[in-house]
Write a protein that binds this DNA or RNA. Structure first.
Lengths: 156, 156
DNA sequence: GACGCGGTGAGCACTATGATCAGCTCGTCC
DNA sequence: GGACGAGCTGATCATAGTGCTCACCGCGTC
């Protein structure tokens, strides 16, 4: 994916500061014509720079305040099958394939510690999963952020 | 955090389907009065249900197509210090404290494999960090999602 | 039965939207 | 040098959405 330019980066920064801002407000903030902002926003969307809206939703607000990473080792030949089964567990919010000792990193959320135990069990019960290790997220020390990278891009 | 109710969940689903939808469009979609939707949206925002806008931005669009998880073991007594130092590395996009063998899970993004190597070095170089292990994300098998949970909440 | 809460529909002035236009300044290419 | 295309600009337009306030109503609570 082609990286965005400095103007787009500033636009994204402005959106970060005020997500519900109107196009005219953004135009004023970044010092561009409304026309330009409108065109760039459209381009950003169509280029897929902005991911799912769901990423902004706090799982805690959905009654799932607990978050954990389940590292799993799987039978590589059954990877597709395993992925599909994991996707059927509602509390599984993300699965990525890793290079390293572990094969899969499964991010899950849970309503309670008890529920988490059950969910971890469901992951282990998936045919093709050989071993799992669950690590509970106790605290978000640095909340997800992209500002430093946006800052760098904006000053290009 | 108090979980949202079914109506809010449907609202969030509608937003997920069409993030730039106007309030009137959302009202029509969920079958509520425009007034109600407006009030609920305001409440959702003020309750902090919606996290940072940056969460929606694809790091690849910022020129950082590589993503990795760096698990680290730290001197627990220097945790605050370590966190602060990690936060100063631009490519560190999230740090969480774990319960388990590893202390910290550091999510980083990088411009290239070479850059990733450098960044992993920076993490290890932080005073108080004792050991690190870097796992490159090769593929997103299940992209981040909250739909299954939203669905459940919407049908309450 | 009084109360408060949340949803409703209506109305209002104000503002934003999306689309289109010609004009302008770049840098690129021949 | 000159033609070209891309991108930003400021203008205009009709249409639509916004934010707000109001009175009203149904519902569960005390």
């Amino acid at each position: 994916m082609e990286p965005v330019d400095a103007v787009d980066a500033r636009l994204l920064q402005a959106l970060g500061a005020e997500p519900r801002a109107t196009v005219v407000a953004l135009a004023e903030r970044v010092g561009l014509a409304r026309n330009t902002v409108q065109a760039r926003l459209t381009r950003l969307e169509s280029r897929g720079v902005l991911g799912d809206f769901a990423r902004r939703i706090d799982p805690a607000a959905l009654g799932h305040p607990l978050r954990a990473y389940v590292t799993t080792r799987v039978d590589q030949r059954r990877l597709a099958e395993v992925t599909e089964a994991l996707a059927r567990i509602p509390e599984v919010v993300e699965v990525v394939g890793l290079a390293g000792d572990d094969d899969l990193l499964v991010q899950v959320v849970a309503r309670s510690a008890d529920a988490l135990y059950t969910i971890a069990g469901s992951v282990l019960a998936v045919p093709g999963v050989e071993r799992t290790s669950t690590a509970l997220v106790m605290r978000q020390l640095v909340p997800f952020r992209l500002d430093p990278l946006l800052e760098r891009q904006a000053s290009t």
